[in-house]
Design a protein around this nucleic acid. Structure first.
Length: 420
DNA sequence: TCTGGGGTCCTAGGACCC
DNA sequence: TCTGGGGTCCTAGGACCC
């Protein structure tokens, strides 16, 4: 069906730092991540808190990412730790430095805090006889430098390297797996359930199962015209991916089509509509702050509130000129919510997202605005921004945030990684 | 069967313009 | 005035990733 001859034949490594948060937290305490039972949870003080990461030894006891704190067995040999994001970031960049010894920055792509791709097609021969040997060296060096264990997938394109990592390397002794096009029938096609495959989740799996597709081989042999008809261009991607094909190249950096700045929260208790106002304002303050640091104006603000019964009220609003002003955003958002949301319901979720950015140099003051007032407000926002950058998010806050509804202090505790 | 919070992308339908 | 086609923007909603 497809001609691998014309497909990319590169040497891509996909590296995953194993149980990253949990491993780093072990190392900080002088413990061995391989033998210690440790979980990093969102907040050790709240029993409903979720497990963000767990060491392999703890996973063996049934604790996994997403478990709740109260599900962790009450044992003396189990450590339960708050996250230290700053340290995780430091470790992540230290490891990135190690990786960058073996490839050019333009051939490197940080996929997330604990995962990255590197194209070593042009560089591996400088350091090793084969990509595999280079992977082994990198694996060893990451461990020597940081004590963090990794897993590495090697492939002829980014997708194959990622699949080699997820399906094989992560689970095997030694932690390195290599997949080439000729391995596709043997390695890819038996994969089942479908959601084990990158890019297919539970919902799509159900729809594919309805069509008699249960493993990746079924998908690879399905008529792509039908996939296109029923799933659009994603259907075509699935067909290519099921055959191990992916044309993305790290060097050809793709710019995000629709970047966004978002803040969302699940509340710790039921909130009345009036209390929602407080949290919403705090969230908008934060996203507007981040927006200004990025020197952008947002033209679109999306927002939603969800009740404890699962009903969601959402809307998006676009203003032609764009804004970075939290008061203006709040006026818009609350104006809509007053009309679309149920004022007597009890709420559990709130989210705000800014999109559709333009540079803030494009700011235009309308003829109807009071110039003096605008400048005053801008000066105030700038001062507040600077204080927040210098002294943290709690340095300046609204009087509203002194009410019981505020979630600010709680969140700051989470970010800092310890309770004040 | 899927935490919580931060992201990105796709599609369909309506409005509007040329 | 009517009809049709093409393009772009906006909104709602869905899906997936770490």
């Amino acid at each position: 069906m497809y001609d691998y001859y014309i497909c990319p034949h590169r040497h891509i490594l996909c590296v995953d730092l194993k149980s990253f948060f949990a491993s780093v937290s072990c190392i900080l305490k002088g413990l061995d991540p391989k033998t210690t039972k440790l979980a990093v949870v969102g907040d050790t003080k709240s029993i409903g808190s979720v497990v963000l990461a767990a060491t392999p030894e703890l996973k063996k006891l049934g604790v996994r990412t997403g478990s709740r704190l109260f599900e962790i067995p009450n044992r003396r040999d189990i450590y339960i730790i708050n996250p230290s994001m700053k340290t995780y970031l430091d470790y992540s960049s230290k490891i990135t430095e190690v990786a960058l010894q073996y490839t050019a920055p333009e051939d490197f792509h940080q996929y997330s805090i604990d995962e990255f791709f590197m194209d070593v097609t042009n560089s591996f021969h400088l350091f090793a006889a084969s990509p595999y040997e280079l992977a082994a060296r990198l694996h060893r060096e990451i461990h020597e430098e940081t004590k963090v264990d990794s897993a590495i997938g090697i492939g002829e394109n980014m997708l194959l390297s990622k699949l080699a990592l997820d399906i094989e390397a992560k689970k095997m002794e030694g932690g390195i797996a290599e997949w080439r096009y000729h391995d596709v029938p043997e390695k890819l096609w038996p994969i089942t359930p479908l959601k084990a495959f990158w890019g297919i989740n539970r919902r799509s799996e159900v729809k594919l199962n309805e069509r008699g597709i249960f493993n990746i081989g079924d998908l690879a042999h399905y008529n792509p015209a039908y996939l296109k008809r029923d799933f659009g261009i994603i259907g075509i991607d699935w067909h290519l991916h099921a055959n191990g094909i992916d044309f993305s190249v790290i060097r050809e950096k793709h710019e995000a089509h629709s970047p966004s700045i978002a803040k969302s929260q699940i509340l710790m208790r039921d909130y009345t509509f009036e209390e929602v106002y407080v949290v919403l304002f705090e969230q908008i303050d934060e996203v507007a702050h981040r927006l200004r640091l990025a020197h952008r104006l947002a033209r679109t603000v999306q927002f939603s509130v969800g009740t404890k019964d699962g009903e969601v009220f959402r809307k998006q609003h676009t203003i032609k000129e764009g804004t970075n002003n939290e008061n203006e955003m709040m006026k818009i958002v609350w104006g809509h919510l007053r009309h679309i949301a149920e004022p007597h319901a009890l709420y559990r979720t709130i989210s705000v997202s800014l999109t559709n950015f333009i540079p803030d140099s494009a700011r235009q003051v309308s003829l109807f605005e009071d110039m003096e007032k605008v400048l005053k407000e801008e000066a105030l926002m700038k001062t507040v921004d600077e204080l927040k950058v210098k002294y943290g998010q709690l340095a300046v806050m609204r009087a509203l945030s002194r009410t019981d509804a505020s979630t600010l202090k709680l969140r700051e505790g989470l970010i800092a990684g310890h309770k004040r």
